[in-house]
Measured scan of single mutants.
Amino acid sequence: NARWTTEEQLLAVQAIRKYGRDFQAISDVIGNKSVVQVKNFFVNYRRRFNIDEVLQEWEAEHGK
């Protein structure tokens, strides 16, 4: 399903906090979204969920 429920959106943001840009890991956490759908989520929801800021926090924690 290409549509993202609110629950899936929140799950994705939590997974980004945990896995950074590991699209496969994020896809696995959500369970019903492909890697391509996760990559599209990054692009389409970047502003709404401040994904750049979430990634900066992840990179700071993981030394990337």
Rank of each mutant, 00 (worst) to 15 (best):
R17F: 10
V38M: 01
F42Q: 01
Q37F: 00
A12D: 00
R17N: 06
Q9I: 08
V54W: 07
I16Y: 07
V13Y: 04
N40H: 14
V29W: 12
Q9T: 08
I16M: 07
K39I: 03
V13F: 10
W58M: 02
A2V: 10
S34L: 04
E61M: 09
R21N: 13
E8T: 02
G20P: 01
F49Y: 15
I26D: 12
W4T: 00
A12V: 08
A60G: 10
E8P: 00
G20D: 05
N32V: 07
Q24R: 09
V29F: 07
T5C: 04
W58Y: 10
I51H: 04
D52Y: 04
W4L: 08
Q56H: 11
T5I: 00
F42C: 07
T6N: 12
H62S: 11
V43C: 07
T5E: 04
K64R: 11
R47G: 13
A60S: 13
V38A: 00
F41H: 01
R3F: 08
F41S: 01
Q24D: 10
A15C: 12
I26V: 07
A60F: 10
R17A: 06
A60R: 10
V36A: 15
L55P: 07
L11D: 08
R17C: 10
H62Q: 14
Q14S: 14
Q14N: 15
I30T: 05
I26C: 00
Q56M: 13
L55R: 03
S27A: 13
Q56A: 15
G31V: 12
R3P: 08
G31H: 14
S27E: 03
I30S: 15
D22E: 05
N44T: 15
N44C: 10
I51W: 08
V43S: 09
Y19H: 10
F41Y: 03
V38T: 01
Q24L: 04
K39D: 03
H62E: 11
Q37K: 00
I26H: 01
W58R: 11
D28A: 11
F49D: 10
T6I: 08
D28R: 15
L11Q: 10
D22T: 04
D28Y: 15
V36T: 14
R48F: 12
I26Y: 02
F49V: 11
A60Y: 13
Q24P: 07
A60Q: 15
R17S: 03
V38E: 01
T5M: 00
